[in-house]
């Protein structure tokens, strides 16, 4: 019979392998064997996700592996998260620096590879990601963010001529009086920190790894602000 460490090792490996079904099975078996959901999350799933991210960044993994790992993590999270919430309800120790992200390539732009990589990396890092796809009207992005009570809205655009719609989104949030409800991340090949600042976004990142770090920082800031409030 496997001990806790072996269960966690197996869970980690299923994420590295991007095996959807195996990750669900491994988590279920670990829970059935009495392994605490917190180490399943932090020492199994998250460690696996971190390794996948590093392999992608180093060029050992490519986009398909990243997407498969994201899928496997999402499937496994659907099993472990309810248990985690039930066991640690109200426990601040398990409050993590992840949250809900609504991400989309903004209207008029149909480039999705960069957005997909960021969405996969966020998923693989434990965020609940709602990927709305490409060419998404800004009002639809905001509507979904409200529906799912998102912490972060992520806007992507490769085309310089689609970047103005990012500014429109922020302006619309302000006009609706909802700007403070969401952190807004913007990204894309031509998006610079200066552009992000100019349009009033909360940040941008040059690659997917940095995007995850930024998202975590924004979540922490948001929670601190809410705590202070």
């Amino acid at each position: 019979m496997a001990n806790e460490q072996e269960h966690l090792e197996r869970i980690k490996q299923t994420i590295i392998d991007g095996d959807n079904q195996a990750s669900v099975d491994a988590v279920k078996e670990a829970l059935a064997a009495g392994v605490d959901p917190l180490p399943i999350l932090n020492e199994g799933l998250m460690v696996g996700a971190d390794i996948v991210g590093k392999k992608f960044e180093s060029g050992e993994y490519f986009l398909p592996q990243l997407m498969l790992a994201g899928r496997a993590l999402k499937a496994a999270m659907s099993v472990v998260e309810p248990v985690l919430k039930e066991k640690y309800v109200g426990d601040e120790a398990v409050e993590r620096d992840t949250g809900i992200v609504v991400i989309a390539t903004v209207q008029t732009d149909i480039h999705d590879i960069g957005k997909n990589i960021v969405a996969s990396m966020l998923t693989a890092s434990g965020f609940e990601v709602h990927d709305l796809g490409v060419d998404v009207p800004i009002k639809d992005i905001i509507a979904r963010a409200r529906d799912v009570k998102a912490n972060i809205i992520g806007c992507s655009a490769l085309l310089t001529t689609s970047m103005p719609f990012m500014r429109d989104l922020i302006n619309l949030l302000e006009a609706m009086g909802e700007r403070e409800h969401f952190k807004v991340m913007v990204g894309g090949a031509s998006v610079t920190p200066e552009f992000a600042e100019r349009i009033g976004a909360d940040g941008t990142a040059p690659n997917a790894i940095q995007a995850v770090k930024l998202a975590k920082r924004l979540i922490r800031e948001q929670r601190e602000a809410q705590g202070a409030g």
């Binding site: 209207q107 008029t108 732009d109 085309l159 310089t160 001529t161 689609s162 103005p164 719609f165």
Partner: peptide, 18 residues
């Protein structure tokens, strides 16, 4: 290349300014 602006006006995708 692509024009970024025309007569100082920003170009937006699918906008008549294209």
């Amino acid at each position: 290349g692509t024009l970024m602006h025309v007569d100082g006006r920003e170009i937006r995708t699918a906008d008549p300014i294209e």
